[in-house]
């Protein structure tokens, strides 16, 4: 398995991987890519063509999140899309930032952005509690 993987890596990049982390991050891009091909494209088309942008507002998002399946879907979409995107950004940094000190600084910053965005997104998706207007009106 590892041999075939390394060969596929070499075919693509024209060199051997620096280590297991690079090899598996490369594999991760392929696996998450296939997952996103289904869920991200579905999300974009579903929200635009099945629901329609004009029908999206606070109530609609809140209603969707009353269904735990949509919460799980949104959470995995967030996790895969952000991790795939940030890892891609890391590749770009590798290509254009050559001074080791700068590379560490830029990648640390990117990692901080990753943790922050993942935290914000996961927090709202997983902890959001919908209070319907009728219930809100009855509150003191």
């Amino acid at each position: 398995m590892n041999g075939n993987l390394s060969r596929a890596f070499v075919n693509r990049r024209g060199r051997v991987p620096h280590g297991n982390f690079e090899l598996y991050s490369w594999l991760f891009m392929r696996i998450s890519g296939l997952v996103l091909l289904i869920i991200a494209v579905f999300h974009l088309f579903y929200m635009h063509f099945a629901i329609g942008v004009d029908n999206i507002d606070y109530d609609l998002v809140a209603q969707r999140w009353t269904n735990p399946l949509w919460k799980i879907f949104d959470f995995f979409l967030l996790l895969f899309a952000l991790t795939h995107g940030i890892n891609g950004l890391r590749y770009i940094v590798d290509d254009y930032v050559h001074k080791p000190g700068w590379a560490v600084a830029v990648k640390s910053f990117i990692f901080l952005v990753y943790v922050t965005l993942l935290g914000l997104g996961a927090y709202i998706i997983l902890t959001f509690q919908f209070t319907p207007e009728s219930v809100q009106a009855a509150l003191p």
């Binding site: 507002d57 995107g85 965005l117 998706i125």
Partner: peptide, 30 residues
Amino acid sequence: SGLGILLFLALHIVDIFLMAFGPEIFNELL
């Protein structure tokens, strides 16, 4: 396109996070 999508994703995470501040602010941002 990867960079563009990532940029949009960052914006999208922040705008969805605004759900935490209630309907007025969220609907305004739409």
